[in-house]
Design a protein around this nucleic acid. Structure first.
Length: 522
RNA sequence: GUGGGCGUAGCUCAGCUGGUAGAGCAUCGGACUGUGGCUCCGAACGCCGUGGGUUCAAAUCCCAUCGCCCACCCCA
């Protein structure tokens, strides 16, 4: 259902007879309705159960954090940070930006005051900005004094303009409120919490999982939404033994198996460490330059910006060239090569089938060694249902102690999509008993019966208004109820209630006290 | 940000070359004032995404715009 005028109501919506405009979920967000929610619950419940058996505890995190947290962990220069995050200033203090030179002293005064009273963020950025702004401004004043004294020439003029420009730039750079971002991923927040709560003093490693919505301001497509859901698990601290990597992957596979996900494929790779990867990247870049003319424009651009991304290319024409590129696993340092071999051995020990995928590389700098991904069928172009890897440097990067780390994130939307596509529509538990009643005395009995049955765990539907039995039974049928409890004058008078089995139409009489026993046996 | 496809009832769609809306399903009511599924009858449901243009006349043709879907880019 579309409503084109939603964003531009023609007539004043609040007044008169004009039809109120229809609202619509924001682009990239959606409602998840019953019966789908039953599947969502099963997916989440199974995660709770399986992850608990591996010693993971649930962590619940804020939906938004300081922008810097994500910028630092994901990388300031990535597309994600520069244009795909939901970022906003949280309640900026009202200090009008200066319009002209005469306005600048007023602005400076107010900002200093606000900074002193913690009304605007007391960040390095703000302190530095104000400091430089003050200096620049005083230079500007000196200069204009000279200009007034008649010392006008071209050099002065240029310098004056430059300073003026700097001032206005600096003024705009002052943050009048904390910049916050709706979380685009969970890992950074988990690490922040690990540090903030001193979890490095707990027995290591600390195993945490978390689930909930994430936000990315991208154009939606199949299996990719602006508000999407992830199930995320992280192992922080402890050794970086290959067994840790393998056990995490084992847990993942057990989880998917319990959910009945079919046709899932595990890909693994090692992307080395700070020692061996940069060397490989250069090697790759060299190799790519040699075949540049055989590549498409996108891949040509990537040669300089991020050569590893060439592996992601889906262009048919490039596949032949890409297949001949050097593999990172042939250029690992001795330690990394040993580690990769050990991880594979540990996986084999656990009977986990995997496929080595030398094209599987993660985009972030802090990722190292083991990376893995799970591809599921029925998902269109976005076919990865889970991605993960080792990130030993991240906690330290965020101001914590040197800490090993590895984790994964499952795309819950895609997982559910794939479960739905692979058929197996799991049956939702419908209602057990529909109470068809007629007459005021029967109603009292019906209310009591509903309460008793619900207390015993049955799902009961009790109509709030009188209905003819034909209608009530029709309703019961449409709702898929298993039984109809019929309460009319006869039943109330005799104390013998009528229980009808909808499937075959059979009916039986029983007393109120015998009802529960009777239902349990059926 | 770029490209392609699509917007008609709650849902799935018909409505060809212009003559100002239809079906099926679903909903509600009745046939059926103590018995559902079947059948029959009836009702409600639409500014044909929105704005403009062409025309005596636009769901239909043209332009614009918005929205949805899919793909690209990117992918934590």
């Amino acid at each position: 259902m579309s409503e084109g005028s939603a964003k531009a109501p023609q007539k004043d919506p609040g007044k008169g007879t004009a039809k109120p405009r229809k609202f619509q979920a924001i682009k990239g967000t959606r409602d998840i309705l019953p019966p789908d929610t039953a599947l969502w619950n099963r997916v989440e419940q199974t995660a709770h159960e399986v992850f608990a058996t591996y010693g993971f505890g649930e962590i619940r995190l804020p939906i938004f954090e300081e922008t810097d947290l994500f910028a630092r962990s994901i990388g300031f220069d990535t597309d994600v940070v520069s244009k795909e995050m939901y970022t906003f200033i949280d309640r900026p203090v009202e200090i009008p930006k200066p319009h002209n030179l005469n306005d600048l002293p007023r602005f400076l005064l107010e900002v200093e005051h606000a900074l002193k009273n913690n009304e605007i963020p007391n960040t390095t950025r703000n302190r530095k900005t104000v400091e430089v702004l003050e200096r620049t401004f005083s230079e500007l004043e000196t200069l204009s004094a000279q200009v007034k004294a008649g010392n006008i020439n071209e050099a002065f003029d240029r310098q004056y303009r430059e300073l003026l420009f700097q001032c206005s730039y600096l003024a705009a750079y002052v943050e009048l409120g904390i910049e916050v971002t709706l979380r685009p991923e969970a890992t950074a927040s988990v690490c922040r919490a690990y540090i903030e709560h001193g979890m490095y003093t707990l027995p290591q490693p600390v195993k945490l999982y978390c689930l909930g919505p994430m936000f990315r301001r991208e154009r939606p497509q199949k299996g990719r939404y602006r508000q999407f859901y992830q199930i995320d698990a992280e192992v922080l601290g402890g050794p970086d033994a290959p067994a840790v990597d393998a056990e995490l992957i084992e847990m993942l596979m057990v989880y998917f198996r319990k959910l009945g996900l079919e046709g899932a494929r595990l890909d693994i790779n090692s992307i080395g460490c700070q020692n061996c990867r940069p060397k490989y990247v250069e090697l790759l870049r060299e190799a790519l330059r040699k075949v540049k003319d055989k590549l498409g424009l996108d891949s040509q651009r990537r040669i300089e910006t991020n050569p590893l991304r060439v592996f992601d290319s889906k262009l048919q024409t490039e596949q032949g060239v890409i297949a001949k590129l050097p593999h990172i696993t042939d250029h690992l340092c001795a330690d990394c090569a040993q580690n990769y071999a050990d991880v594979k051995r540990e996986l084999a020990l656990r009977n986990i089938a995997f496929q080595q995928n030398w094209r599987l590389v993660r985009g972030l700098d802090y990722y190292m060694r083991t990376t893995f991904e799970i591809i599921a069928p029925g998902l269109g172009a976005q076919n990865a249902v889970c991605g993960g890897g080792r990130y030993d440097g991240l906690v330290e990067l965020l101001g914590g102690p040197p800490t090993k780390g590895i984790g994964f994130a499952i795309g819950e939307d895609r997982l559910i999509l794939s479960l739905q596509e692979s058929g197996k529509p799991k049956v939702e538990r419908g209602i057990d008993v529909f109470i068809a009643w007629m007459g005021e005395p029967a109603y009292q009995t019906a209310v009591r019966a509903a309460r008793t049955l619900r207390d015993a765990g049955f799902s009961v539907e009790l109509p709030g208004t009188p209905q003819k039995f034909s209608k009530a039974l029709g309703q019961a049928d449409k709702l898929g109820a298993r039984y109809a409890l019929i309460l009319g004058e006869d039943e109330v008078a005799s104390g013998q209630w009528t229980l009808k089995t909808l499937a075959d139409g059979s009916q039986a009489k029983c007393t109120e006290s015998a009802l529960l026993e009777y239902l349990r046996k059926l």
